[in-house]
Design a protein around this nucleic acid. Sequence first.
DNA 1: CCTACCGATCGGTAGG
DNA 2: CCTACCGATCGGTAGG
Lengths: 203, 203
Amino acid sequence: MTNKQWSNGIQTVDEKRAIKRQAILRVAARAFNQQGFTQTTLTNIAEQLNVTKPSLYYYVANKDDILTGILEEAITQLRSVINHVTTVEASGLEKLRDFFFRYSEVVTDDFGACLVLMRINAPAARFRDHYNALSYEVLQAAEQFINDGINDGSITPCDPKYTASALLGTMNETVYWHVVEDRESPKDTAVRFFTIFETGLRQ
Amino acid sequence: MTNKQWSNGIQTVDEKRAIKRQAILRVAARAFNQQGFTQTTLTNIAEQLNVTKPSLYYYVANKDDILTGILEEAITQLRSVINHVTTVEASGLEKLRDFFFRYSEVVTDDFGACLVLMRINAPAARFRDHYNALSYEVLQAAEQFINDGINDGSITPCDPKYTASALLGTMNETVYWHVVEDRESPKDTAVRFFTIFETGLRQ
DNA sequence: CCTACCGATCGGTAGG
DNA sequence: CCTACCGATCGGTAGG
């Protein structure tokens, strides 16, 4: 019989494994984002965790498993953003703005950035399905908010597909910014970018 | 004494070398864009040209030299676009639009795409200087056109730096589109994207 | 322009 | 969790 108080805060073997696996994914994601998947060696990742390469294989199956784990984590986070914003009661423009902000925060995190960069990074072909499936959901969601906005009068009539892509392109731009160097918070950047889209260029 | 008519259309040894080198760069650029620099082997490039790997070394110094050659070609093209648009007599908005269109065409070509993708592709760190220097020039040019537009009243007051980055982010989006699959012409895509920026979202 | 080859790197495993 | 090691790949060169 397990004593609740006794076992409180004490981790089971499985919990310890999960935590260490998560630590590997985090370190790996950061390395992949900075050097690329192929350039990053398992020895390199192991060193940052103060262990040797073979030790990693107790927590992950292989190098591909690491990347898959990262991508799945990011996809879960992004799906949750889509679901949240979809259920909000607000105008289309407000939902689009909210989505833009939340998306930009997820996607500037190590895991989210890895997903976005993966679409073009070295091993993309092998992992493109992960990106493509999600990319479609994200575009669909953005399109939906734009259509909502056109219908409720908060957004000017436009091509929802291209508008969604232009917004995502700009969002992804913030990913590169924040991977390469420290800047103001992703949210602040997102606010500035979204304002440009809202206002438009023409006098 | 060289007979002009006689030598017309007949290539010198140097010309033949330059043409073959160019062919290598072109095939390599396409491969780098699709598979990434590290994933692309010299054997792979050689096979597409129906020669063996060692033959390439008659035309290029090494793998890095190939990429450097591609990047320099792209940089030359982009500088020429900047110079051209800078000297045009037109409103700021018109210059920005013209720049957007021309940039999008250069950057969806094999060489131009390679430059844009290189900012995050595997060997980025080693070649980042090439990208950064040009990226700065491109941003500066876009900012200049935006400032011109604000001053001549063709563009609504905005933050030129962020606006330039948002535009470039969207431009780069077209690169991914056209690298991954065939679509309508880059120009047509650019027209649609720019319209969104001109109009703005808010009703 | 090719055949043959070297040196180094790296993912992954054996075995404890 | 580590030491030791294998197999495969790949950039680059020798030498013709």
